[in-house]
């Protein structure tokens, strides 16, 4: 049904999005926790910065990534020298762009789920002898889990659709940075490739729908037996 080339595009998109979400996860969770639980000066600024990719033109985000993570950019050099990771014209760059664009959505969903945890339950656990870390592991984390998973799926879906920042930052290179949306865009430039466009678009719809359904199932499963708290 799919050509080998289309399979490659699909797998590349999945790899880029998966890596983007996993790499983004610790940062997103940390920021969500900070914004939900810690009062500090400059909190509004952090909040605004996190949300910036959501409202900035993606091409500007891509250009800023180019400045920071390009071969001569300060962050780019550090990654190259210290970790041996290069972003330019590589799939890693596509993952980085996707991660930056997914961050606001992930932080938002995770923050809401952390804020929704009833802190009186945490206090109850403390009176029962639980340390801070034990309260986190046995009360806060399990109660926030559905929202955390939903945030990850949302970030994954957003990464799959990432176009503007990616093409600006790492261009359109088959097998490296040509993800689904960029492949569709490329096909649209070639006359008579309607079939390719249709197939790729259908794959996109299927993936996005699948992600949303998966998140719904995950949320329901982890929510089993867990109503509002009683009394």
């Amino acid at each position: 049904m799919l050509s080998a080339e289309e399979w490659d595009i699909l797998l590349l998109s999945m790899k880029v999005s998966g890596v983007a979400v996993l790499a983004c996860l610790p940062l997103a969770f940390g920021l969500a926790w900070l914004l939900a639980r810690v009062r500090f000066p400059g909190r509004i600024l952090i909040d605004a910065l996190v949300h910036l990719p959501l409202v900035l033109p993606p091409v500007v985000t891509g250009w800023l990534l180019l400045l920071a993570f390009g071969n001569t950019g300060p962050a780019g050099r550090w990654f190259e020298d210290v970790l041996g990771i290069s972003f330019m014209f590589r799939w890693t760059g596509a993952a980085l762009a996707a991660a930056v664009m997914a961050l606001p959505l992930m932080v938002r969903a995770m923050r809401l789920s952390i804020e929704a945890v009833d802190r009186r339950l945490e206090a109850a656990a403390e009176t029962l002898g639980a340390s801070r870390t034990h309260v986190f592991a046995t009360i806060t984390l399990p109660l926030a889990l559905p929202g955390l998973l939903a945030g990850m799926v949302l970030g994954f879906a957003r990464s799959l659709g990432e176009f503007g920042a990616t093409i600006t930052f790492v261009s359109n290179i088959p097998g490296e940075t040509r993800t689904l949306p960029i492949a569709i865009y490329s096909a649209l430039q070639v006359p008579g490739s309607d079939n390719v466009v249709t197939r790729l678009a259908l794959i996109s719809v299927a993936l996005s729908l699948g992600a949303l359904l998966a998140s719904e199932v995950l949320v329901r499963r982890s929510g089993q037996g867990r109503g509002r708290h009683v009394l």
Partner: peptide, 12 residues
């Protein structure tokens, strides 16, 4: 041993 007015049983 704190017994709260609202129970505060762990819902999960």
């Amino acid at each position: 041993g704190y017994v709260f007015q609202d129970g505060r049983l762990f819902p999960h």
